[in-house]
C-alpha cells in the first residue's frame, strides 16, 4: 500500500480557488454596501431638505432645521489652512530626505523614521495635546502676537481662546505632513538618475539641478501627494473635534471657532434625538464620503501617472 493516499485533489483546488475569490469579492461588496447604507440612511433628510441642505446655514436640532454649509466650509477651510502650513514643510522634508540633492545618510534615516512615528501617533493624542498644550499657547502668545502685528487683516482679528480654526489647521498640518513628505519623496526618487546626472554634467548647482531635472517630471506627482494629504485632512475627526471649538458659523477670523463635517458627526451622532436629525447627520457623512473619495481619486491618478512613467 502506498504511503500517500492517491485520492484526487481537483476538488481541493476548486474549493480553495472559490474561497479566495469570494473573500476577494467581499472588498468591493463592502464598498457598495457602505455607499448604499449611507444613502439609505440619508434618504429621509435628502427627501426632506432637498439640495437646499448643502447651502443652508442653520443647524438647529430643536427646530429641526439642518444645513451643511458651515460644516462644509469648516472642513474645507481647516484643511486648506493645514495645507498652507504642511506643504512647504512636507516638501522641504521630501526633498531633503530624497536622493535628489544628497546621498542617503544616517541623519536622514533618523529623521525619516521620526516622521514615520509622527504618522503613527493616534488622532486622539493629537487632540489631547491640542487642547492642553497648543490651545493655551496660541491663546496666550501666538494669536495675540499675530493680532498685534498683522491685526489689520480680518484673518487675525477678534477674541481668541485658542480653540478655533487656527489650532485645527495647525494640528491637521502636523498630522498630514508625514503623508505629503513620504509620497512626495517617493515621487522625487522615481525621477530617473540619468536626468539628474545630465543636469549635473553641465555644471549646475544643486538648486539648479533640482529645478532643471527633478521638479518638472515630479511636479504632477507632488501635487498628487499634496491632494492625498488634503484627503486625509478632510476626514480627520478626533483631533479637529477637540480643538476647533465646535460652533457652526462662518467667520473671517482664524481665531474664531468653527465646525467640520466629521466633528459634528462625532459629537452628535450618539445623541441624535430624532430620526430626522440622525438622517441629517448621515447625509453629512455622505457628503464627506463623496468629497474624500473624489479628492483621493484625483490624487491617486496624479501620483500613479508620475511614478509609473518614471520607472521606464
Amino acid at each position: 500500500m502506498p504511503l500517500i493516499r492517491l485520492n484526487s485533489n481537483i476538488s481541493g483546488d476548486a474549493i480553495f480557488r472559490a474561497t479566495t475569490y469570494v473573500f476577494a469579492l467581499i472588498i468591493p461588496l463592502l464598498l457598495l454596501a457602505l455607499f448604499f447604507s449611507l444613502l439609505r440612511g440619508a434618504l429621509p433628510a435628502i427627501m426632506h431638505f432637498g439640495p437646499k441642505f448643502l447651502i443652508d446655514m442653520s443647524w438647529d436640532p430643536v427646530r429641526e432645521t439642518y444645513g451643511a454649509l458651515p460644516f462644509i466650509y469648516g472642513t474645507v477651510a481647516s484643511s486648506v489652512l493645514a495645507l498652507v502650513v504642511a506643504v512647504p514643510l512636507g516638501l522641504g522634508c521630501a526633498i531633503y530626505l530624497s536622493n535628489a540633492v544628497s546621498p542617503p545618510s544616517n541623519i536622514k534615516g533618523i529623521i525619516s523614521q521620526m516622521i514615520e512615528l509622527l504618522a503613527a501617533i493616534p488622532s486622539i493624542i493629537y487632540g489631547l495635546w491640542g487642547i492642553f498644550v497648543l490651545g493655551p499657547f496660541l491663546a496666550g502668545f501666538f494669536e495675540p502676537l499675530l493680532s498685534a502685528t498683522l491685526g489689520f487683516l480680518p484673518l487675525f482679528q477678534g477674541a481668541s481662546n485658542g480653540l478655533g480654526m487656527m489650532s485645527a489647521g495647525i494640528i491637521l498640518a502636523i498630522m498630514i505632513l508625514p503623508t505629503i513628505a513620504a509620497v512626495s519623496r517617493e515621487v522625487i526618487d522615481a525621477v530617473p538618475t540619468v536626468l539628474k546626472e545630465s543636469a549635473i554634467s553641465i555644471g549646475t548647482t544643486k538648486w539648479e539641478t533640482f529645478m532643471l531635472a527633478v521638479w518638472g517630471p515630479s511636479k504632477a506627482g507632488i501635487i498628487g501627494a499634496v491632494i492625498l494629504g488634503l484627503g486625509r485632512a478632510l476626514g480627520e475627526t478626533m483631533a479637529v473635534t477637540m480643538v476647533i471649538g465646535n460652533r457652526p458659523s462662518i467667520s473671517a477670523s482664524l481665531f474664531a471657532p468653527a465646525y467640520t463635517l466629521a466633528s459634528v458627526i462625532a459629537n452628535e451622532f450618539a445623541e441624535a434625538t430624532s430620526d430626522l436629525s440622525l438622517s441629517a447627520l448621515i447625509e453629512l457623512g455622505l457628503v464627506l464620503l463623496i468629497l474624500t473619495v473624489a479628492v483621493n481619486g484625483l490624487a491617486r491618478i496624479l501620483v500613479w501617472k508620475t511614478t509609473s512613467k518614471a520607472t521606464l
Binding site: 464598498l31 457623512g285 464627506l288
Partner: peptide
C-alpha cells in the same frame, strides 16, 4: 476592480466607516 475598491476603501475617513457600522 477589486484592487481599486481596496484603494478607495483605504481613503475613506474612519468616521464614515463608523456610520456604516452604525447603520448596519
Amino acid at each position: 476592480f477589486i484592487r481599486y475598491a481596496a484603494d478607495v476603501l483605504s481613503g475613506i475617513p474612519s468616521i464614515v466607516i463608523g456610520i456604516f457600522a452604525y447603520t448596519l
